[in-house]
Amino acid sequence: MEYFLELLLGGLTRGSIYALIALGYTMVYGIIGLINFAHGEIYMIGAFTALIIASVLTILGFNHLSILVLASLVAVIYSAAYGFTVEKVAYKPLRSAPRLSPLISAIGMSIFLQNYVLLAQTSDFMPFPNLIPDFDFMEPYAHVIGSSELVILLTTAAVMMLLTVLIKFTKIGKAMRATAQDKSMAMLVGVNIDRVISVTFIIGSSLAAIGGILVASHIGQINFYIGFLAGIKAFTAAVLGGIGSIPGAVLGGIVLGCTESFATGYVSSDYEDVFAFTLLVLILIFRPAGILGRSTTEKV
């Protein structure tokens, strides 16, 4: 039972990270219908920036809390800036191009960013400082859930709530929903599409950065390549939940995380990723629109 609980919490933790990254995919897809392949790289850049800032501050002798806050803040800002720039450089000129062109551009951007970090920094794994302290009150439960896992779960929950409020109740949230439903109509009623798209990229990238910081300090090391697999997994989560749907991305992330956690715990850790992809293939075959996605029938 305890083992089960441990796996479940492990799965939830993993799943919330997937969910954080998946939200970026799902929001971008919902609005411009593009699989933003470079999104995983934004997550990686978020983690790297946090690492660099944290290391610098540590050497300069800042205290623990201020490092945590400053490093996270800078990482989120930078990721958002990268997301914004990537959209402007690689996707915006391609709005009216054939459907596959932005996708290729995205793949190119992903390769570019990976190698950019590889060249400017290092190809080795870098030790990531543990930004999340171990709480004393967590001690009795340490065999089931660690402090960093708790922080991940709580942060994710808080971020999700913020996002929901943003999308449901703010003006820009309404504009985003309108754009997702009908771009040209939204434009006609005065929504500034370019701005909405930029904001979407900024929000998505910030979420990815938060995911990046959390996971990096949880695992303790990063390299330039972490974005690729995380990106694919997160995209899988988004599709699993029904792409374009925000609760779907969260649910998809959690389902994926738990599946992986249980499969590695009870079956074999070698095939962790195989389970993830098999789950995806199966769900899409039996429920092509994803768990929460609505199947759209084209009007004839």
């Binding site: 191009a97 551009s105 190119g108 570019f112 990976q114 950019y116 060249l119």
Partner: peptide, 21 residues
């Protein structure tokens, strides 16, 4: 050699932006 993948990614993006067809 270090820069080749960087350039590869770059060319893909530039190509799509300037000649998507």
């Amino acid at each position: 050699s270090d820069y080749r993948m960087l350039l590869f990614g770059c060319i893909m993006v530039v190509m799509m932006v300037f000649r998507p067809q």
